[in-house]
Amino acid sequence: MNSTERWELRLYVAGKTEKSVTALNNLKQYCEEHLKGQYKIEVIDLMVKPQLAEGDQILAVPTLVRKVPEPIRKIIGDLSDKEKVLVGLNIIPA
């Protein structure tokens, strides 16, 4: 993996629910393990900014969106399956 690549991740949640907390914790853990120093996580609470849901075509929460590198990838759920998340984000090859 190219170590100079930047990762911009966005996590959409709806309030501080159990699922969103779990998702955020999981995400932070995976990023620390595999993308240390190369990533940025932006958490968007749709309860606060509902108008942002349309832009990224959010239906389900929590949804993790990989904005950079392209193409955009989405992972929904509490991100409990580590391997699926890493493969989905293309951090490790399938």
Partner: peptide
């Protein structure tokens, strides 16, 4: 093809969009 599902989720996002 853009979406992976891992673990529990709900459709609150849709609700929020509709509500908004």
């Amino acid at each position: 093809n853009q979406i992976e599902e891992t673990g529990a989720y709900d459709l609150e996002g849709l609700f929020i969009r509709l509500n908004y």
